[in-house]
Simulated assay, not measured.
Amino acid sequence: MAKQFPQIEETHRKFIEEQHMFFTGSAGPEGRVNISPKGMDSLRVLGPNRVIWMNLTGSGNETAGHLLEVNRITLMWCSFTTRPMILRAYGTARILHAGDDGWDELAALFPAHRSARQIFDVSVDLVQTSCGYAVPLMEYQSERDTMQKWVDNKSDDDIRAYWSDRNRSTIDGKPTGVPV
């Protein structure tokens, strides 16, 4: 049975911190809906209505483009271990890039990563939990080292060139606001 809350409760925070991955969901007023898996040490719960995550370079940049058009976002955590639960946090988000006011303060909460593309500062206005009974049990092995190897083989200029080539617009052709 789904339950709704106006904020992230302490039990929710603990659940979030136990998960090795989360998903983001966003959409513009038209076009495709985007759902992206996120991992690594890239998310922090800063309060009952605030979550931030450092978005690392990826093959697309849909969330940023969608938020520029329609400021709404959903974050979802799903337990793959013995405690079945799904938790969704609904809200809006502010996008920060390196050099923006507040970037240094928030970036300091994460391990340094040269491919950090944005920080999303999410204001949560609704939390919903549901059972997750149909979610399979899976065993966590480890983080992948693929991202770090990719970054280690690139200069800062190479990463910015990648952003320019692959991350400046959504798959629907909308701007993402990524600096290049």
Results as ranks from 00 to 15, higher is better:
Phe22Gly: 13
Thr170Ile: 00
Arg72Cys: 07
Ser123Cys: 08
Met85Glu: 15
Gln141Pro: 01
Ser130Trp: 04
Ile16Lys: 03
Ala64Lys: 05
Val135Gly: 01
His113Trp: 07
Met40Lys: 10
Phe23Ile: 12
Glu30Trp: 08
Asn61Arg: 07
Pro37Thr: 03
Thr81Ala: 13
Asp125Ile: 07
Leu137Ser: 14
Asp145Arg: 08
Val151Thr: 15
Ser26Leu: 09
Arg50Ala: 13
Arg50Trp: 06
Val45Pro: 02
Leu87Val: 04
Gln141His: 12
Gln118Ile: 02
Pro175Val: 13
Ser142Pro: 05
Trp163Pro: 07
Tyr162Thr: 05
Ile159Asp: 10
Asn61His: 10
Pro48Met: 06
Ile159Val: 14
Gly25Gln: 01
Ile119Leu: 03
Leu96Cys: 10
Pro48Leu: 07
Leu68Phe: 02
Gly65Asp: 09
Thr63Asn: 14
Thr11Asp: 15
Pro48Ser: 11
Tyr133Arg: 03
Trp77Thr: 09
Arg32His: 12
Cys131Arg: 03
Gln7Arg: 09
Ala134Ile: 08
Phe23Ser: 08
Lys38Leu: 13
Thr170Trp: 04
Ala27Gly: 06
Thr57Trp: 01
Arg44Ser: 06
Ala2Tyr: 11
Met40Pro: 05
Ile86Glu: 00
Met21Arg: 04
Leu106Glu: 12
Val124Met: 08
Glu62Asp: 03
Met1Tyr: 11
Gly60Ile: 00
Glu143Asn: 10
Val33Ala: 14
Leu96His: 12
Asp165Trp: 10
Lys14Phe: 13
Ala27Gln: 14
Ile35Thr: 09
His66Leu: 08
Glu18Gln: 12
Thr81Ser: 14
Phe5Gly: 02
Met147Glu: 00
Ile52Arg: 10
Lys38Ile: 04
Glu10Asn: 12
Thr176Leu: 07
Arg83Val: 09
Ser155Lys: 10
Phe23Leu: 12
Arg72Phe: 03
Thr92Ser: 14
Lys38Met: 13
Leu56Pro: 01
His97Ile: 06
Pro179Ser: 01
Trp103Asn: 07
Ile16Glu: 03
Pro48Asp: 15
Met138Trp: 13
Ala2Ser: 14
Ser115Asp: 15
Arg114Pro: 02
Ser115Phe: 09
Asn167Pro: 09
Pro111Val: 06
Trp103Thr: 05
Val45Ile: 13
Leu43Gly: 02
Phe23Lys: 02
His20Tyr: 13
Glu30Val: 07
Gly132Ala: 12
